[in-house]
Design a protein around this nucleic acid. Structure first.
Lengths: 368, 368
DNA sequence: CATCGATGTGAGTCCGGTCTCAATCCTAGG
DNA sequence: CCTAGGATTGAGACCGGACTCACATCGATG
């Protein structure tokens, strides 16, 4: 019965002040470590606080300092290790600087994102790190930006808003990777992504994701540079769940004009794509070459190990958090960091399978 | 120049009230949708709010309702897909119920956890979901519990506190898995974990993690049931980073008395263990059988696909969130859910390699 | 027509801190 | 010994909502 009577209701400065026999103001000063306080008072207050096990109410503090020491992070899917790692980079950095992170998942749904941003703003986060679900409909983000609240984009851009963005140059690495595949003789290269669109891919279509748009653009450029026609029919979007990824994979690998190389847009898709390939009885890289975005550790364990495009995801997270913190502290932005993805050549890309196995048109065309 | 003069400082109820020509109280009622408000007033207030694009300050609201609609989640490492998935389960469920999640990473460090809990409490989260870094030193958790703040443990227990805990029965599944290995003829079974300890494993040692302790206990029981001696020397803890995991793996697989089966304590370790095995030129399962905790999708892609212990991680996250929400809403706890892990037999466990290859003692002993 | 209960409404307090301001103390310089 | 100026200190305003309370208002009841 150690004075348990009063359930709930925390100890406040006022309580501490009373216990220490000083005014609330003095107690607050001693506790908050600001203003002038005599040693005597400080000691008494601190002792009283200790005795009552006083803990400051950060909400109250936030309310009149206007700073919540909290940042909001909005991503498409934490379950995806890509974002898992980025988030780790963000939280590690934030914690070091005394900030906490409120994490919101949007499932890549724009409405959910609008909502998430609103809620975070209502909670008065000091800043936002967002992986925009759409780089087209950016009204809500524009608004945040106009309001002057610190914000940083990660992984993707949104519109062409003047907001610091931590992302790799996708077009560049995509072109490089495509060249690599072209050099290996591939002409029918498929690209599979979960990106939701209203209509199937056609050149000139506006894509919600700057990332994906850039990747496709990079591929197109590589084909163009090589003087080859870009196989638009092999760009497959809307591969939402495992089943559709599988069926899309089967589709592109079927028929006389089948793809001889497949590029998976992220690590989650990759799993289903590879499984589908295995189920078809095709072997990598003898029958199909395979390439994926993101370098997860397990890609080294498959047989053969997978050729991947590695992105400095953790560092992007760190950089995003650092940039945001600078903004929140009113410092001028640091020199914009450039993140470069790299093509990690392992064993899943091989030469195009013998001609008998695939379409002849291409060869015929070149011989004519 | 749209009245931009006043930088920062948000619109408050008072502003809305003035614009709508009503008292602050009435405006608050109309906006907060409580109390009695005439249609006329409500309309004017809502219109004014719209016009000024008023947004409530959740901090202020939290301050006098005492509810922040925020829950704190403390895990060891979000980068680990195990926690990534659990977190997804938590956030999905929390969002549906109108709660936000503040995520803190502890790196499995108890001091960091103490700190995390304190910060979250200071921020007045309505409840906590914690994967306790230590089930031994639980002072800070006891304190939270005593304070009456809603709390749920996930993945592990802490002490034997009467706190709802969402975790699988590790001892049971570990025993089952070990039996499976024993049935396949294995006697030298290694267990590799990152768990930090001051001293190497010896029977009776107190382990920080209830999870790991249970797994080892399960193994021991299986050996006991089979009337076989438990190979304590093959329990290897402190395999912190990739290098030490590799070297530990090499160690247990070396010599005449080497392990013929290896159990990896989680998906992250598994990667390095398998790599080390491959580097040694040993093949799975011909030379070494392999088993790991957590069923990640990539385990189906290796050759052979890996035999794993699947845990309903996402569901545990969902259940943890649901339980916490019940607590926060003052409802009585639901019937305690039981989560069962399952052994997914794929291709990485095979019979013990021919005797010539390993130690003979065991055989000799049985023949004597 | 007086009365009663159900709205409506505005003034003002409170939550738990931070911070301003004026009053009080002290101490060193003149 | 007197006083200017810095160090202390307490009262109270304030942040932005929620909520209590006293005071109208108003239609319906007896």
């Amino acid at each position: 019965m150690n004075g348990e009577g009063a359930r709930r209701r925390d100890v406040t400065v006022a309580d501490v002040a009373k216990a220490a026999q000083v005014s609330k103001a003095q107690a607050a000063r001693a506790l908050g470590n600001y203003g002038a306080v005599s040693d005597d008072v400080r000691e008494r207050v601190l002792a009283a606080a200790e005795a009552l096990s006083y803990r400051p109410n950060e909400l109250a503090r936030s309310m009149n300092t206007g700073k919540s020491h909290t940042i909001g992070v909005v991503v498409g899917d934490i379950e995806n290790p890509h974002f898992g790692l980025a988030t780790r980079g963000i939280t590690d950095t934030a914690k070091k600087a005394g900030y906490n992170v409120i994490l919101v998942n949007t499932d890549e749904d724009r409405d959910a994102e609008v909502d998430a941003v609103r809620v975070l703003l209502d909670k008065r986060v000091d800043g936002l790190i967002i992986a925009p679900a759409s780089s087209v409909e950016t009204g809500h983000l524009q608004e945040v930006h106009r309001s002057g609240r610190p914000m940083v984009f990660i992984d993707r851009t949104a519109g062409n808003m003047p907001v610091e963005t931590m992302a790799v140059d996708m077009a560049r690495i995509s072109r490089e990777a495509t060249q690599y595949l072209l050099d290996a003789g591939h002409r029918r290269i498929a690209f599979i992504s979960t990106l939701r669109t209203d209509t199937p891919y056609t050149p000139g279509i506006t894509l919600e994701s700057s990332q994906i748009a850039d990747r496709i653009e990079g591929m197109r450029e590589a084909f163009l540079d090589a003087g080859l026609p870009f196989p638009e029919d092999l760009v497959r979007l809307n591969a939402g769940d495992e089943d559709s990824i599988r069926s899309v994979t089967r589709e592109v690998l079927r028929g006389r004009d089948r793809a001889t190389a497949v590029v998976a847009s992220d690590g989650l898709i990759a799993l289903s794509v590879v499984e589908a390939i295995q189920e078809l009885g095709l072997s990598i890289p003898a029958d199909v070459s395979f390439l994926m975005y993101d370098d997860f550790a397990w890609t080294r364990l498959t047989t053969p190990p997978l050729t991947v495009i590695a992105q400095p995801v953790y560092n992007m997270g760190v950089a995003a958090a650092k940039a945001l913190i600078r903004q929140m502290e009113g410092l001028p932005p640091a020199a914009p960091a450039q993140f470069t993805a790299t093509l990690v050549r392992r064993g899943s890309v091989g030469p195009r399978p013998a001609v008998r196995d695939v379409e002849r048109e291409d060869v015929a065309a070149r011989l004519s």
